[in-house]
Amino acid sequence: MLSFIIRRMIIVVPMVLLVVTITWVLIRLAPGNFYTGERRLPAAIEKNIREKYGLDKPWYVQYGKMMGNTLRGDFGDSLQYRGQSVNQILLRTLPVSATLGLLAYLSALIVGVSAGMLAAMKQNTTLDHASMALAILGISLPNFVLGPVLVLLFSLTLYWLPPARWGGFLSWNLVLPVVTLSVAYMAYIARLTRAGMLEVLRADYIRTARAKGLPERQVIFRHASRGGLLPVVSYTGPALAFLITGTVVIERIFALPGLGNYFINANLNRDEPLIIGIVAFMSITILIFNLLVDIAYAYIDPRIRY
């Protein structure tokens, strides 16, 4: 197991470089530059800008500089947000997105898993159908609809909660975005849990356990839950990685200073250092979370080995 983890950690570096390279090529292929605007720039001014940012240099020089920056973990200054380094932006926005994402996922996990397990245990009962129908409703309500509806209800009609903006890590401002964000995930998790549990509840070893006369609770929690949660665990890796690195729609609707909105804007503005920085960070996050998921596999299901 240890060697497996070490192997996977070592591979992170070439992987990140690969992702960053692909991204860099994509940025070059995309039309437009960070300086293109509503009004066409005189050629001389465009030339000045290109010289200032080294865009007049041959591609391998630019590529080498970018790779060097990535290896050093210092991505330079943002092109759109002048005078702010990419690392500064990452450090500032990450806690916001992470707080939001973790809180949302945690609540989604708790509610989703319990609802899913309950539904699976009481398959085809009203409880099952009701919770699953609710889950589907949660999925089919886009968060850009749910968010504003909640705002309309709780902020603009009842005046209970602030409609938007960041108010610190522990503030009422977080309630609506976290709820909005978690509903879809909650629903996903509930459905995946139910499916996984149903699969497992029919497995031989569960029947064996039941046949042995173990109490149902123990069968469910000690035996079935492990295998039954496998799909949820698979799903958690990428889901959590994406949640932590920002959720654009929520951040925009609730005007939160998170990473997701920066990332979208960086893409739209062709802000190369910022895109590269965020992509590098995101790929590390994804790799690590997927590694954690793989470790969790082995823990949950002893038959899985690496």
Binding site: P148, V151, S155, L156, Y159, P162, P163, A164, R165, R252, I253, F254, A255, N261
Partner: peptide, 17 residues
């Protein structure tokens, strides 16, 4: 306040923020 969505802006305005 840096805000991007007109809907968010109008909401904050309406809520007196």
């Amino acid at each position: 306040f840096p805000l991007e969505e007109n809907m968010t802006i109008m909401n904050l305005y309406k809520a007196g923020e």
